[in-house]
Write a protein that binds this DNA or RNA. Structure first.
Ligand SMILES: NC(=O)c1ccc[n+]([C@@H]2O[C@H](COP(=O)([O-])OP(=O)(O)OC[C@H]3O[C@@H](n4cnc5c(N)ncnc54)[C@H](O)[C@@H]3O)[C@@H](O)[C@H]2O)c1
Ligand SMILES: NC(=O)c1ccc[n+]([C@@H]2O[C@H](COP(=O)([O-])OP(=O)(O)OC[C@H]3O[C@@H](n4cnc5c(N)ncnc54)[C@H](O)[C@@H]3O)[C@@H](O)[C@H]2O)c1
Lengths: 214, 214
DNA sequence: TAATTCTTGTGAAGCATTTCACATGAGCGG
DNA sequence: CCGCTCATGTGAAATGCTTCACAAGAATTA
């Protein structure tokens, strides 16, 4: 019975959630798969198929209740609750992420910072004191951290991630441009900006246009 | 004859390029599809099929010459040359990107910065003076910019992108969490970190492990 | 109540991508 | 130079994902 949900479907759930949030702000009460599709450059059939993996949320002839569907989406995505996030590496990109208030508004609360630079350890970023990387495993456990963001140089990322995994964390967002080894029960996602620039460069040189834009 | 190259293949080309660069640093001379696959958690067949879209670069029984294949990859990806990049929005994320030296090392040179904040206009970031957003279209044309990175609030991103498109730019990397409209000849890529966090949250809640890690 | 309109939910068809499997060619050791 | 090993390149099969197309349910109007 349990069908494997594809990566693309999960990403589109995020898009639906985003579109529904906007619709709610616009005080729109119901929305059809057609309208939802248009807003995120997809097809109505795609929208309905994606939703159908999780249940049937609409009314024939009418469409979907915006508020209800949004709430359903948030449950499916697991964002109807708060998440405790730790950020490792308070450099260029790390600092940008701590300052980004939107994450907290979405339920992703960065509650812990780590670095190995003595000048940074003990300093305060947006109300959070930077911890020593030495205490990583211990503090991740103590603080019940569920998601870790890795923003350290690629050369040390694997060591860091090994500790993160040892601490029992099951979800990692990695910014270092390196292929990290994690056990199968840990979900690792990579945010690789160079790869996106290379995609653009490929597209320009080869006159290629992507079919779908993530 | 011209086969459509899939998004996944293009992303994997970046992975091959990265792995080959490391192999070259390690003074490895030849590499098999098997080894290349292992390094990036792929299958040997996948590697060979991807490469086969662009030619045949290997030697049966031996594998691929690391230096040669790397050079071929860089030509295919269009990174055997320099690119002139402009960055719009010198806030949290924009500042992090300007400071990141790796982009320039890969041939992506951020040579132009834009903002609308009077306190930022005229200021110097890593040797580049921030221009007024008012002059965006004119300066993008004058300076022959080919790739634009958009790091402004979502509320203004569409206006900015319209100007970027009007200036004839064909490649855009967008960090704003919004679905931007661009004409079909323009390649738009979105870097959406919230979406990745939502992916992780989905994975944890649904006990889902992705098949492939991008 | 019946006819009309609208839009969902979903098997099945149509495409796309990945994996398989093997013929083929290169190097090497005896 | 022959036989053995290794690894590529590629059609074909298998798998996965998207789109089609339509039965069926809900509202609305007559
Ligand atoms: N800055 C960007 O725009 C950008 C873009 C793409 C990728 N990245 C990647 O993101 C990562 C961080 O980049 P950055 O520009 O912020 O680098 P950075 O050097 O500014 O920051 C790295 C931080 O990690 C800390 N660190 C180093 N070793 C550590 C360790 N062992 N334990 C804990 N902390 C440690 C450093 O003290 C520093 O604060 C890198 O892997 C980089 O390749 C950055
Ligand atoms: N900071 C992050 O970690 C992060 C994470 C995910 C997504 N984002 C997205 O990236 C974008 C930038 O985020 P940020 O945190 O750097 O925001 P920010 O507010 O720090 O920076 C935005 C910059 O854009 C400039 N700007 C505003 N309107 C402009 C206009 N019309 N023309 C030119 N410049 C203008 C502002 O002056 C500011 O310098 C946002 O869309 C945000 O949602 C940021």
């Amino acid at each position: 019975m349990k069908k494997r949900i594809s990566e693309s479907t999960i990403h589109r759930l995020s898009l639906y959630y985003r579109a529904l949030s906007l619709l709610e702000k616009e005080n729109v009460v119901t929305v059809s798969s057609k309208e939802l599709a248009k807003r995120e450059k997809l097809t109505p059939a795609q929208v309905r198929k994606d939703l159908s993996f999780f249940g049937s949320f609409g009314t024939r002839g009418l469409g979907y209740q915006v508020a209800e569907l949004r709430s359903r989406m948030s449950h499916i995505l697991g964002i109807n609750r708060d998440w405790r996030v730790a950020l490792i590496g308070i450099g260029n990109i790390g600092s940008a992420l701590v300052s980004y208030k939107e994450f907290a508004r979405q339920g992703f609360h960065i509650v812990k910072l780590f670095d190995n630079d003595q000048r940074k350890i003990g300093s305060n970023h947006k109300g959070i004191v930077v911890s020593d990387i030495k205490d990583l495993e211990k503090e991740l456990k103590e603080d019940n951290i569920e998601i870790v963001i890795v923003a350290v140089p690629a050369t040390v990322a694997q060591y860091i991630v090994d500790d993160v995994v040892a601490a029992g964390v099951k979800a990692i967002l990695n910014f270092a441009p390196i292929n990290l080894r994690v056990p199968p029960e840990v979900c690792l996602r990579n945010e690789n900006m160079s790869m996106e620039l290379e995609y653009l460069s490929f597209a320009v040189v080869n006159n290629h246009t992507p079919k779908k834009v993530i």
